[in-house]
Design a protein around this nucleic acid. Structure first.
Length: 930
RNA sequence: GGGCGUAUAGCUCAGCGGUAGAGCGCUACGUUGACAUCGUAGAGGUCCCUAGUUCGAUCCUUGGUACGCCCACCA
């Protein structure tokens, strides 16, 4: 990597980030390298139609963090990337474009349509991969895959054919969730069922002339939320033990409007408590009714077309009507015949298509299914036995509860964009499956004289994504990648796709490779806006990660948020909200700040993370802080710099010892997927230890000692060494700023890697533990803080020098004071530090720290008066602490039952309180007398 | 109807069987030779309620309340 110019005077992410990424990519740093133990992650392939949202940004940050860490830690690291063809979503997008251009998929025909989609993918599908680069994702672009590329298609065929041959894929006429607008079947998971306002209608079905109910009525009343389906009724059911209707079982009613004779059947499914206890049975249009119908061998009367209009199986006057129009018509027809008993408002669960939002219809069609049980059992076991572990663990229960009740998977879709099902039909409708038509013929001894037609349907997108971990590595061939990088180490995913994707990957991968797809599943929450609201188009509260990185003006943000909105009122509200929340637009915070934010909010236990730009701003300041600290270090190393160890001061030894501790805790945090702690620990160390204390502690050395002296060189060397390690520690989190800094610092440490990305991650053993230094600096910090406290209480201007008297000190304190005299005087603006022996207590403002008393003598009487108040308050506080401590120690049970350690600690506290009180009371009376 | 999660400072969240923490926000004071994108000090919490277990509970257990989520065919 070419040498960069000196650090810019100002930290500006825009000046470093994109160039840096480009260098990384062109130099091939993202590819697996070295011969360490393999480590691999596959990206959850984003929809090729998509654009990057904050959720992706979060997820990619987490994965990149793990990848960069392991890569630096010596593992041979593969981050597999790619995109998903996203059947329905993509077909919808392109269809919409065609519609705008005045045509439609059917207008073009299948071949031309799929050509258009491919073309569109090639042109527009790159958006999301470009955006991934902006987040800093170090994926191996050379291995980018697509779920419909050639290799993938081969894998899909292979899986389908093998499952079919094993009897695990079958075709059947079943009731499925049908989307009348998309005109395709959907799986159960793609159905979003929500409560909506509806009605419950009570309808009268006339009994035959010779029958009456127990209470003498000549009709039965059924309750329904979907009166239009009555045209397909096949029976009326009652509970077998329901005394009210016992005499009617086996009799019949006449279906109004149709005049069909319906048997009255008994089925335990019916709840006698609900409505009238009579249930109309429509086996072709309701999942429950379908099961009941099967039990009683009822006829399946399909009354809908594929667009949910009434078909020829209904009386002529209703034919061709839309289902909702038919509902109105039927209700009013019944009403006019006196057959509508009542109608009341009712909350109904309405099933809608996940993508289209259309009300779905249970509809009878021929579809392909995966018989899932044989696949599910080993997949359950893999998690039970711990071959796969979820993190946090509670998600395993979610997985189990779904898997144990799993139903067959409807995999065929009546779309054109996707993997076409490898099945052919002869003229009699017999089905033949093969990897291609020829194989289908050969396997089934069909000569070319038999005309075959291919099944037009495609597979559910998730069928192919289920193969993602192994198909991207070359399966069904036995490739080097598969043996090296599979199973992958961890899957990073949101809980929203555990069923859609995670479970299905586990099932398919176990079946076809005998391996688990991944050893761990890290389940993260969903990013929300700062109020905890879901980010949606209609709320207009969404944020584009790129806008957080590059910044955006208020006007542009409003334009973006209100584009393509159907309702003008919404646009107005969104404009107002945006003006309120972002009066100045969004400044360019940079990728590093955004990544830091993602890491910091990734705490387990939270299933959603509120995203607040103020937080991003804070981490932007953090990057700036690091930048400026680097400027300080660089400004203090000249041509004559030499790296040397052996003469470290207490402060030097202290910061090295602290760094050792941070390396230990951050590595631990990463091993537990505690990205929040990882970020927080590094923030704390960088800002509050390295910058706040250590940098300040080096100033007296750098400014006062002779250049080149042992102490000077030790401070310089430590400043550089610690910073160099620190940026390596931080690199997985904030890759850009650390790379930029590292390029300046690394040469000073004789680090010769071209990039920080490939430098080794720091280890604990890089630095020495030094308890003595830690104690001394802790002492210094206590004393400095105490003096600052007193100064503040006395309102002594920050610039004024003070005299400080210390009593109650031990020999160790004396040594510590001696060792830290210089920095102490600088940090607390102390001109004289007197350690007074004997009993004479100096008079002044006093603060006690442990057994030490620190006193600032008074300058005049006014100060004396003020001090009394402060001391009284302090005495009061200490007294109450002492009281609490005493009550514990006077408790027999506490002393006898609590661990010695705890009791001793309490005793020490008590002693300290007492001596502190004594000092302060003495001081109080001395002041009072003066 | 089942299941799960969460309740801690003004806000967003860590934490823990032994005297409550961070970031942001707020207050006061500061142009100290990296940084005002900063520094120093400070205010601010019956750790949702209840009953237990315990020498000791914010933490464990019971029950409850509030909010959120997932699954499910009550017409």
């Amino acid at each position: 990597m070419s040498k960069q110019p000196q650090l810019d005077p100002k930290y500006d992410p825009r000046r470093i980030e994109q160039d840096t990424y480009q260098r990384w990519e062109t130099n091939g740093y993202f590819a697996p390298q070295g011969n360490g133990k393999p480590y691999s992650i596959v990206i959850p392939p984003p929809n090729v139609t998509g654009t990057l949202h904050l959720g992706h940004g979060f997820q990619h940050t987490i994965m990149d963090l793990l990848i960069r860490f392991h890569r630096m830690d010596g593992r041979e690291t593969l981050w597999q990337t790619g995109t998903d063809h996203a059947g329905i979503a993509t077909q919808m997008v392109v269809t919409e474009q065609l519609r705008a251009a005045g045509t439609s998929p059917t207008g073009l025909g299948r071949d031309e349509f799929t050509n258009r989609v491919w073309k569109w993918r090639d042109e527009a599908g790159g958006t999301i991969t470009q955006q991934m680069r902006r987040i800093g994702s170090s994926v191996d672009w050379d291995r980018e895959r697509f779920t419909m590329d050639e290799g993938f298609s081969r894998a899909v065929l292979e899986v389908f054919v093998r499952l079919y041959d094993d009897g695990l894929i079958y075709r059947g006429k079943r009731l499925v969730n049908w989307d009348p607008s998309m005109q395709t079947a959907l799986s159960d998971l793609e159905v979003i069922s929500e409560e909506e306002n509806g009605s419950l209608w009570h309808l009268r079905y006339p009994l035959r002339a010779d029958t009456r109910t127990m209470d003498g009525k000549d009709f039965l009343v059924v309750a329904t939320t979907r009166p239009e389906t009555m045209l397909g009724d096949a029976a009326v059911a009652v509970h077998p033990d329901d005394e009210r209707y016992r005499n009617l079982i086996g009799k019949s009613v006449t279906l109004p409007l149709v005049d069909r004779e319906l048997p009255i059947i008994a089925d335990a499914y019916v709840d006698p408590e609900f409505g009238t206890g009579c249930l109309k049975i429509t086996p072709a249009h309701d999942f429950n009714d379908n099961e009941i119908g099967a039990r009683h061998d009822l006829e399946l009367i399909n009354i809908f077309t594929s667009t949910a209009h009434l078909n020829d199986n209904v009386p002529e006057r209703f034919r061709g009507m839309d289902r909702f129009a038919a509902r109105k018509e039927i209700v009013s027809s019944l009403d006019s015949r006196g057959l509508l008993e009542k109608e009341k408002d009712y909350k109904v669960q309405i099933p809608r298509g996940e993508r289209s939002g259309e009300v779905l219809e249970p509809w009878l069609t021929d579809q392909w299914f995966v018989a899932i049980k044989d696949l599910a059992d080993p997949a359950i076991e893999a998690v039970e036995t711990g071959r796969i572990q979820f993190e946090p663990k509670r998600w395993e229960n979610v997985y189990f509860s779904w898997m144990r009740e799993i139903k067959d998977w409807a995999i065929s879709r009546q779309l054109w964009w996707g993997h076409q099902i490898p099945a052919w039909y002869d003229e009699q409708g017999n089905v033949y499956v093969g990897r291609n038509e020829q194989e289908a013929r050969t396997k089934n001894n069909l000569d070319n004289g038999v005309a075959l037609t291919r099944d037009p349907d495609v597979l559910d997108t998730w069928f192919s994504s289920a193969l993602w971990t192994f198909a991207t590595m070359g399966w069904p061939d036995e490739t080097a990648e598969l043996s090296k990088f599979h199973p992958t180490d961890v899957l990073v995913t949101g809980h929203d796709i555990i069923f859609f994707w995670v479970a299905r990957m586990i099932m398919m991968t176990l079946r076809f490779t005998g391996e688990v797809p991944f050893k761990q599943v890290y389940v993260h929450g969903l990013v929300r806006d700062k109020h905890g609201q879901k980010m949606t188009k209609t709320k207009g509260n969404g944020l584009d990660p790129i806008d957080v990185i590059d910044g955006i003006t208020r006007e542009d943000l409003i334009t973006k948020r209100t584009a393509n909105l159907t309702q003008a009122r919404l646009a107005q509200k969104i404009t107002q909200d945006t003006e309120k929340d972002y009066p100045e637009g969004i400044p360019a915070f940079g990728t590093d700040a955004l990544r830091f934010t993602f890491s910091a909010i990734a705490s387990p236990g939270q299933s959603s993370y509120p995203f607040d730009l103020q937080q991003v701003e804070g981490y932007h300041f953090f990057c700036n802080k690091l930048w400026n600290a680097t400027k300080f270090v660089l400004s203090n190393v000249g041509e004559d710099f030499r790296m040397e160890t052996g003469n470290e001061s207490l402060a030097d030894r202290w910061i090295r010892s602290q760094l050792r501790d941070v390396i230990r805790t951050t590595r631990h945090a990463l091993s537990e997927y505690r990205f929040d702690r990882y970020a927080q620990q590094l923030y704390q160390f960088t800002w509050h230890e390295y910058c706040d204390w250590y940098l300040e502690l080096t100033k007296p050395v750098l400014f006062n000692e002779e250049k080149g002296s042992d102490a000077y060189v030790a401070a310089q060397s430590t400043l550089v060494t610690v910073l160099e390690s620190l940026v390596r520690l931080l690199h997985p989190l904030i890759p850009y700023v650390t790379e930029t800094i590292w390029q300046q610092i690394a040469p000073l440490c004789d680090k010769n890697h071209e990039t920080i990305m490939l430098a080794e991650y720091p280890t604990e053993d890089d630095f020495l533990l030094d308890e003595q230094a830690e104690q001394s600096i802790a002492w210094l910090q206590n004393v400095v803080t105490a003096i600052r406290n007193l100064r503040s209480a006395r309102q002594i201007p920050p610039g004024d020098q003070v005299t400080v008297q210390i009593t109650g000190h031990t020999a160790a304190d004396r040594d510590a004071a001696e060792d830290t005299r210089v920095p102490l005087s600088r940090l607390a603006k102390v001109s004289d530090l007197d350690l007074i022996d004997g009993d004479t207590m100096p008079i002044g403002s006093t603060q006690v720290v442990g057994n030490l008393s620190i006193t600032l003598p008074f300058a005049d009487d006014a100060e004396r008066q003020q001090e009394t108040k402060r001391l009284q308050k302090e005495v009061e506080r200490l007294n109450s602490e002492l009281k609490r401590s005493l009550s514990k120690l006077n408790n027999e049970n506490f002393v006898s039952k609590a661990p010695d350690e705890v009791v001793n600690k309490e005793r020490d506290r008590k002693t300290t309180y007492e001596s502190q009180l004594q000092v302060l009371e003495e001081q109080l009376s001395a002041i009072g007398m003066g």
